[in-house]
Design a protein around this nucleic acid. Structure first.
Lengths: 220, 220
DNA sequence: TAGATTGTTAATCGATTAACAATC
DNA sequence: TAGATTGTTAATCGATTAACAATC
């Protein structure tokens, strides 16, 4: 198992969570070992690609045997940063923020959700789930006093960029952006923005169900 | 502008909604024309890639001038299927379903949201926004009587696959899947599933903020 | 040991970028 | 017209797939 220092491509990185998810399910089903070809079959990838992907990180298998499901899962979890005690806050406790706080298992993904912020007096001071909701004017101080790794942005479009800038000034490492805006953050090259663009996803689906004659001409 | 029958790659397709979004913003700002290089600069793409992407569909520009923003936007909207009168129903009016019904602009993306379904008697018979909520046992008949293009799946994990199968039997063309489950739909090759996996997105962000020493060894 | 399956390099394929003639 | 910028082909780059020696 040799150290591989080549830069890992984003295509590989985006497959890691899928590996993690599938391996977790296999583990729950009690599967102890799996070969790259069996895993590939169940995930719709080639065995070659799986071995190549894992090779980026040194490879975690054993010739003639395959991969230990639990060990591989844990290794990938480590690579993804699941055991680093990441912390998160939610900005905007509207319908979507509410839904994320209540339903999304931050803990399963290695994040501790510690607070939420909103501008509405009716919700400030309450708890959603176990999460306290503070006023947005308390954000600066909160960020000064706590290490917050990411901000979850579920505020209205109109204030999205301002709030994002405030998070950046407060020292977050990443922003999980649910607003349909492309954030413009000057001089924050080391802050990572991960977008969840619902509209992009739906429009892709729209394209795919719309059939093939996309140039408006008759077929012959 | 010649007809191009080569299959369009998924990489290109997934860029189309971004083009659409950026062009919409430019249009709102009153920009009338734009060159591939200016658009590329503002989107973080090369001019070459933009021209190559549009070339897949025949090209919509004019030498020496560039692209008419509104015309290009509309052409891409057409390609994405925005003007086909698509219809949608939501399955599962929990926190997330509620948030989507209330906040997400289906109309902006060419979809008419027509109904929602849930199992909870407290919500059945009510309206969320303007959308009526029916009992899940009325779904089969509803699908028989109405043409529904996509089902939006925001039900609990445990019933996700069953509900998806019911949608397929009811004749939907696509499923917009917000459950963190990989749907297994036997014999439904022509039904498109578009996944919105929150966890995958967050874990990608987790990786990116976790620094580079992913093999646990000390640097030298 | 023999069989299986990985780690790893090489070959192929596809996507992005470069170049430039066509043309507005 | 001259300048600008596209449409389109060719070159390059990177990602996926194939192959096979290493080894459990």
């Amino acid at each position: 198992m040799k150290k591989n220092n080549a830069k890992v491509s984003v295509a590989v990185i985006r497959r890691l969570p899928r590996y993690y998810r599938h391996l977790s399910e296999l583990m729950q089903q009690g599967t102890v070992r799996i070969s790259s070809s069996a895993l590939g079959r169940s995930m719709g990838l080639t065995a070659s690609q799986i071995r190549q992907d894992l090779f980026c990180f040194g490879g975690f298998g054993q010739q003639g045997y395959g991969y230990n499901v639990e060990k591989l899962r844990d290794e990938i979890g480590d690579i993804l940063g699941i055991n680093r005690g990441h912390t998160a806050v939610v900005l905007g406790v509207g319908n979507l923020g509410h839904a994320l706080i209540q339903n999304f298992k931050f803990g399963n993904n290695g994040f501790n959700l510690e607070a939420a912020f909103d501008i509405d007096d009716d919700v400030i001071g309450t708890n959603v789930g176990n999460i306290p909701v503070y006023g947005i004017d308390e954000l600066d101080e909160y960020l000064r006093l706590h290490r917050v790794d990411i901000g979850v942005l579920t505020v209205p479009r109109s204030v999205a960029n301002t709030m994002a800038e405030q998070l950046v000034r407060g020292g977050v490492k990443g922003i999980w952006n649910f607003t349909n805006l492309e954030l413009k953050l000057e001089g924050a090259q080391d802050v990572v923005v991960e977008n969840v663009h619902f509209a992009d996803s739906l429009l892709t689906l729209s394209y795919m169900i719309s059939g093939r004659d996309h140039n408006g001409e008759e077929e012959e």
